[in-house]
């Protein structure tokens, strides 16, 4: 289990890169990397030939999240101005512009089936679900306010929704908040199920395990420097991984489910062996916060390995081979 650095694109954007996501391969093209930046653009990269393929403009005030549809043909990006732009990957034609004021938009995620787009709704303390066929808002998943607390100034920002993740079967959505709690929702019934407690600082990234038997396992990355591994259904903490010296900004799980990668504001990318519950590799090639790490689809040449991409405030994007 290791990461081998492949190549790095310096100055991939004109400013800090805040988001990255893989676009699955289609008949026309191999897997592509989508990045979003403070420079208000979204760019597409071919990992094999890391030259910029395409630059999409049309956002104002910094792109905070990008997500790709499982089909690989559609993608979405969101920025601080609270607009979601859905576009055609190949042509960059805008398919839809979504907004649900006053809810702002943070993390975006398509469900594995490709029917729904979930968006963490920030101050609205909810997750918005958008239908991908007609681009209509179909549900607002809201965590109940903790009892006994008045909707006062302070508690108002507490459940501020930052991050969102789909379970592999698409039946569950987990959402991380500024106060560190994670809310788990039942999607078909559009109901709040329960909280997962443990973090007390913002949870900026969430991901469900992709291994077939571990589909209940949820990884959460928090500003408290820890990654928690939860059993999302039994409401238990399976383990807690510490080692980053500052905020953990991003977490992603490898396709084989045996490892996770994390990116943190301590500038490092870590690879964690889940069996040993420890970091097996620490990569320090970035010179600023690492805002995004993302495992790509398995390689065609070698099914046991896949690509990992990391994007950082230092304006660079790095590609690694995970095997």
């Amino acid at each position: 289990m290791k990461l081998a650095p492949l190549n790095t694109v310096q100055n991939a954007h004109d400013d800090s890169i805040w988001a990255a996501a893989w676009v699955p391969p289609t008949e026309d093209s191999g897997p592509l990397l989508l990045t979003g930046s403070l420079d208000e653009t979204v760019r597409l990269w071919n990992p094999n030939d890391p030259d910029k393929l395409q630059t999409n403009t049309g956002h104002c005030l910094g792109v905070v999240s990008v997500a790709a549809h499982p089909s690989g043909r559609i993608a979405a990006s969101a920025s601080i101005d609270s607009f979601i732009r859905v576009f055609d990957v190949a042509t960059n034609n805008t398919i839809a512009t979504l907004e649900a004021p006053p809810s702002e938009v943070w993390q975006l995620q398509f469900n594995p089936q490709g029917t729904t787009l979930a968006a963490a709704g920030g101050g609205s303390a909810s997750v918005k679900l958008w239908d991908t066929a007609e681009w209509k808002l179909i549900a607002t998943l809201e965590a109940p306010r903790p009892e006994g607390l008045k909707p006062s100034e302070r508690s108002g920002s507490k459940k501020f929704a930052l991050s969102v993740a789909w379970s592999p079967d698409g039946r569950q959505v987990a959402s991380g908040a500024m106060d560190g709690t994670i809310s788990v929702f039942d999607v078909p019934r559009a109901k709040f199920m329960h909280h997962l407690e443990g973090h007390c600082m913002p949870v900026r990234s969430l991901v469900y395990s992709s291994a077939p038997l571990d589909s209940r396992v949820l990884f959460s990355a928090s500003d408290d420097g820890h990654v928690h591994v939860y059993d999302a259904e039994r409401k238990t903490l399976i383990t807690s991984l510490s080692g980053h010296s500052s905020w953990v900004l991003s977490v992603d799980v490898s396709p084989d489910g045996a490892a996770i990668a994390t990116g943190a504001s301590d500038k490092s990318v870590r690879l964690w062996d889940l069996k040993m519950r420890a970091a097996t590799q620490i990569l320090t090639s970035h010179t600023d916060q690492v805002w995004a790490v993302a495992f790509g689809p398995t390689l065609q040449t070698d099914v046991r390995s896949c690509l990992l991409a990391s994007a950082s405030d230092d304006k660079s994007v790095s590609f690694y081979k995970y095997s």
Binding site: C60, D81, S82, P101, P102, E104, G123, E153, G156, S157
Partner: peptide, 24 residues
């Protein structure tokens, strides 16, 4: 002009959000 549009957007959003929670 572009920035002014952004400003309008930002302030409008804030104004809308203030219904949800007071931010001071």
């Amino acid at each position: 002009v572009a920035e002014l549009k952004n400003a309008v957007r930002v302030f409008s959003l804030l104004s809308a959000a203030s219904n949800l929670h007071s931010h001071g």
